[in-house]
């Protein structure tokens, strides 16, 4: 992903995946070919669900992501927007995850001149970091202002940074690091249909107290791979349209 080329990365993750299986208690040397597991798996559209109504802003997702993807300390794929509404004592506070929304119809892929951006079988927009030439076209067309232009401290080259949905994990049937770590289960991972159903059911529950609650991402850009549960209208958030 970030600093490895894609082939190397898959190699790393194959071993990682196997070691994880081993640690989970299945006997066997850690040389199980994870790729073969992946090949047997039926591919369907997957999604991350960010239920902002359960997020306590602990930032574990950001850090798990940074470690998983071996990002330098200052680089992060997951950021947050915060809004306050009302005056004391009737204040409410809301957070929203700001990271790649994994558009079904992703304009960044269309404009990338070197095919550094591409769709995986799970529907996420992955990045070939080595291939990126830092032209910033993806940033200019992104509807959500996500990719960040920054220096790769190892090579000194300037590149675009954005969430790749942990390609090395999801392509092996694994779960993105942000969803694995989330203690409030605000971040969940599953098939797109499951996640949408969960989001809709949560929003129905929220509407008692938050009549403007909504699911964001069921239709935008032909459906988003990062679905959002919002308690207030999308227009309140600086990076949503």
């Amino acid at each position: 992903m970030t600093e490895l080329n894609r082939r190397d990365f898959l190699k790393v993750s194959a071993v990682t995946g196997a070691a994880t299986v081993f640690a989970a208690g299945c006997a066997g040397a850690p040389d199980v070919a994870a790729e073969s597991i992946a090949e047997e798996r039926p591919r369907e559209r997957m999604a991350l669900l960010m239920d902002n109504s359960l997020c306590v802003n602990c930032q574990a997702c950001r850090l798990a992501c940074q470690n998983e993807n071996m990002l330098p300390v200052e680089r992060k794929y997951i950021r947050f927007d915060y809004i306050d509404k009302g005056r004391f004592p009737n204040t409410t506070h809301h957070v929203n995850r700001h990271s790649c929304q994994h558009c079904g119809n992703a304009p960044c892929i269309d404009v990338c001149p070197v095919d550094a951006l591409y769709k995986g079988q799970e529907g996420f927009t992955h990045v070939d970091f080595e291939a990126c030439i830092g032209c910033q076209l993806c940033g200019t067309v992104c509807p959500f202002d996500v990719p960040v232009y920054n220096e790769d401290p190892r090579s000194g080259a300037w590149k675009m940074y954005k969430c790749s949905a942990c390609e090395h994990l999801v392509s092996q049937g694994g779960t993105p690091a942000c969803a694995s770590t989330c203690m409030t289960e605000a971040v969940q991972y599953g098939t797109w249909e499951e996640m949408l159903a969960k989001a809709e059911s949560r929003v129905a529950q929220l509407r008692d107290k938050h009549p403007q609650a909504e699911v964001y991402g069921s239709t935008q850009q032909d459906g988003l791979g990062l679905l959002l549960v919002l308690r207030t209208p999308a227009a309140d958030y600086p990076h949503l349209v």
């Binding site: 239920d51 109504s53 359960l54 997020c55 306590v56 802003n57 602990c58 004592p89 204040t91 409410t92 506070h93 809301h94 957070v95 203690m183 409030t184 289960e185 605000a186 949560r202 529950q205």
Partner: peptide, 30 residues
């Protein structure tokens, strides 16, 4: 925190008495 959030997700009524609108109060009632 996992149990607390499960209660929030289950629709339990939760009140946070606090002089500050902390992040737990933000997802329940302050």
């Amino acid at each position: 925190a996992n149990c607390f959030a499960a209660a929030v997700a289950n629709g339990a009524k939760i009140v946070c008495l606090d002089p500050r609108l902390n992040q737990s109060a933000a997802i329940t009632e302050w």
